Amino acid sequence: MRKREMVIKEMSSAMQYTFEITMAGCGTNCMHCSVDGGPSRNMSFSDYIKCLKKLKPILDPLEGDISVTPGNEPLNHPEARKILSYTHEMMPKYYPDQPFDTPTTGVVFMRRKDKEEIIDVLPKIGANEVMLTLHGNEKHHNEIVRNPLGYQSIVDTAQYFHSQGFKIVYNLMVSKYLIEDWDTVVSFLKEHHSSKVHFTIPSYLPIERLNIYQKIRAEYDDCMKLKGRLCEMGIDEEKFFEKVESNCEKTIAQRFKDGIDYKRAEKEYPNWVFFNISQDLDIYYGNAGARTKLLGNLLKESEEELYQRIIAQKANYSYSAYYDVDKLPAIQSILEKVQPLQTNYVYSRESDCLYWWFNQCNIPDILLK
Rank of each mutant, 00 (worst) to 15 (best):
E143P: 01
S348G: 15
A14Q: 15
Y86T: 08
M91S: 03
K53R: 13
I201F: 01
E73V: 09
D258M: 13
A321E: 03
Y285Q: 03
E5F: 13
G25T: 12
T133P: 05
Y355A: 00
R111C: 01
L55E: 05
S34F: 05
S318N: 12
D365R: 01
L59C: 09
K56Q: 12
M110I: 11
K3V: 13
I283K: 01
F240L: 12
N72V: 11
F166W: 01
N72L: 10
E5R: 15
F358P: 00
N247T: 06
I118C: 05
L335R: 08
Y94N: 08
E242V: 08
V346C: 11
S46W: 09
P340D: 08
G259F: 12
N362Y: 12
K9I: 07
D120N: 11
V130I: 15
I277W: 00
Y284K: 03
P148A: 10
L205K: 02
N344K: 06
T251G: 02
L230E: 02
Q360F: 02
L295D: 01
P74K: 09
R81Y: 07
F100M: 10
K337P: 03
K50T: 11
S44A: 11
E89W: 10
D236I: 09
H77C: 10
L132I: 04
Y86K: 11
F100C: 11
C231L: 15
I283V: 09
